[in-house]
Design a protein around this nucleic acid. Structure first.
Lengths: 228, 228
DNA sequence: ATCGGTATCTTGACGTCGTCAAGATTTATT
DNA sequence: AATAAATCTTGACGACGTCAAGATACCGAT
């Protein structure tokens, strides 16, 4: 037969790179049918492989989803880093840039974003996943601190990520930034703002986010009392 | 046999109030197993009824979930209204009160909250659901406007809810409030802040939310330019 | 070059799921 | 009391995730 799969050619009994093919198939399924129509068997079907094959690479459905979620976090991190760098080059606000990047990344791959934050069983103990998650959060921390009217240049603070955030004086501001960005993204993605998009259009909402919401947010950060 | 169900007694062939019994069972399942372990057959089992029985009251799984989501919105609305009223009595901030109420309601019934916002197929055309959703949003609009340094007392603005929010000058502030509240709630509920709760504890996070996050938010609102 | 071990994939099956069509049973209407 | 409507059951269908056992291909040691 030597039939060809959707992404990778199926040469013989072995696939070659089934792991990557399954991830590609999973992303395609998420893009087409959304998180509701996502199925492990469908992914196997698209990769031209039996329903039990994925188990050898991902263990179970949770394993595949965790791999996707890791990609999701990496995508967010990469987009935020790139946007921040570009903003510096262009002389714009870095925090505004990463907010736009967060939102744009989620809208570009809504299925992937929902796997990350959608509370479908992920393996939180997976080391790659944990690292990707921590990296994304560290970017948020770094950029939020850079926007605060204090501690400019104390780069050594950026490094102590894992240990005890509890008493961190900037924690409120960090969580505020994340909450606004994540909240708006989630509401938009889940169709909660559709009744607005009907008249305003999605682009208008994006514009509103980066030109008004983020501005309000930054003003709140700049006016926050450093001695609090 | 005349066996007794979990919630309502099963007298004969007919149930009596199967619709309510199914909703109760569904909430119990959500509370015990979360949204991942939710199953229509399990709900029917707990109500002491065959797997096909729910179809006559809810059509399908989507119908039952939509009913739950309607309860979820009503719960949010009721809690926010009550908290705002109580805040006025106590001389506190109404906006802070509804923020706490939103968060507390979600934490009290996380499964229900996830049905509302978790992007598991709901019937957005259901009239009860639409009304419950609109009511919750209208409360947010009302309280946000009350916090703005303008338009105090122009109650007629509150009434024009459905028609064209597009050019509303307060839209950015409204969405900011909703984004912060919803974003923080979602992050906390989905375990994204667990690495903080390990050292700080969940109560500390709640305290941080109402004492620092909401304060920052309100300061942003008060400083927002009315002529923007 | 061959052989044995191991990684990879298939086959077949199990239990569970949502849903449908058809029939049984109870309630409501006239 | 007879007929209509509402309610619930039975039985079945296809699809799902997962497992155990077997088939096939690769790979390093000899």
């Amino acid at each position: 037969m030597t039939r060809a799969g959707a992404k990778a050619v199926r040469a013989g009994y072995h696939h070659g790179d089934l792991r990557q093919a399954l991830i590609d198939a999973a992303e395609a399924v998420l893009a087409e049918k959304g998180v509701g129509g996502f199925t492990l068997r469908e992914c196997a079907r698209r990769a031209g492989v039996s329903p039990a094959a994925p188990a050898h690479h991902f263990g179970n459905l949770t394993g595949l989803l965790t791999a996707i979620a890791t990609l999701g976090f990496d995508g967010l991190s990469g987009a935020m880093d790139a946007a921040a760098e570009a903003a510096t080059q262009a002389g714009g606000s870095r925090l505004r840039a990463i907010g736009e990047a967060y939102l744009a990344t989620a809208l570009a791959r809504p299925g992937r974003f929902r796997v990350v934050f959608g509370q479908m069983g992920l393996n939180g103990e997976d080391p790659d996943f944990k690292q990707a998650s921590a990296r994304a959060f560290s970017i948020l921390v770094r950029e939020t601190r850079a926007e605060l009217p204090q501690d400019q240049g104390e780069d050594d603070l950026f490094s102590r990520l894992p240990p005890s955030f509890a008493g961190d004086p900037d924690l409120a501001e960090i969580l505020l930034v994340w909450s606004v960005t994540h909240g708006f993204t989630t509401l938009l993605l889940d169709g909660q703002l559709d009744f607005l998009a009907g008249t305003a259009g999605r682009e208008a909402l994006l514009k509103l986010h980066s030109e008004r919401l983020v501005v309000l947010l930054i003003s709140a950060l700049r006016s926050s009392d450093p001695s609090a």
